[in-house]
Design a protein around this nucleic acid. Structure first.
Lengths: 125, 125
DNA sequence: TGCTCATATGAACAATTGCTCATATATTAA
DNA sequence: TTAATATATGAGCAATTGTTCATATGAGCA
């Protein structure tokens, strides 16, 4: 109980210790959150969703999403840094495509969660 | 080409149209981003990761993560609203546990992406 | 009833983020 | 080289977000 992070008395020490031992390293969980943060933006989700269908150049994506070339370019940078997309240069044009097999699974599972029938018990009892 | 969202001339109309037809509805992509936004925070990732191992009360989670009861409670609310955790009341104590089969798959795929060997081509060409 | 404990929640503040605007870089063509 | 085009990028700003602090709710107990 040592340090006081909680005003409560009922701390199940055994559970806490067991969980602490089994949990992944802090660094990995941080990286995982960073990855999901990349997926957590509508524009980036749309870009990824588009690249599932075809390789596209920056200009095409901008036109498709009715957004600025600059805005798209900035977001593509984020996706590149997360190693989620790769690029191919052809003259002045840069074509982007997906660079990871896991994205599809993650997206599909996410969509399945969304499509699940909603219960009626939202609030806490 | 109609509206100008991009200063470029080289727009591959056929690709854009094909992709536009195949992409999921805008609303679903929005919801998907909202879901990933929930995963995109270290504290919430840690909470979920802990709940993979055992059902826990608010106080235990706070102690485990060395964080305030208030901070944990706020984040649990976000997880509840996303229908990712469920709760069970036992007297004054509220126990939380995971409420979705897809989370595990999403997490595992995310971890696999992170563990992939990194290439050395970060910057653009 | 009144007290205590476990949890929930509202307000406020600092930090982060996505877009815009202006500009830089790189490639092709004249 | 100069001009034009496709993309990248830095600064700045508005909007969002996670935490803290104070307080509310609600259940068990004296």
């Amino acid at each position: 109980m040592s340090d006081e992070f909680c005003s409560c008395d009922i701390v199940h020490e055994n559970v806490i210790e067991m969980v602490r031992k089994k949990m992944p390293q802090e660094e990995k969980l941080y990286d995982l959150a960073e990855l999901f943060k990349v997926f957590g933006d509508t524009t980036r989700v749309k870009i990824i969703s588009a690249l599932f269908e075809a390789e596209m150049c920056v200009c095409d994506i901008a036109e498709l999403l009715h957004m600025t070339q600059s805005a798209i370019s900035h977001q593509l940078r984020v996706l590149r840094q997360a190693r989620l997309v790769k690029h191919r240069k052809e003259g002045k044009v840069v074509f982007y495509s997906l660079d990871d097999e896991h994205i599809k699974t993650i997206f599909n599972q996410g969509l399945e969660h969304i499509l699940e029938p909603r219960g009626f018990e939202y609030a806490i009892s």
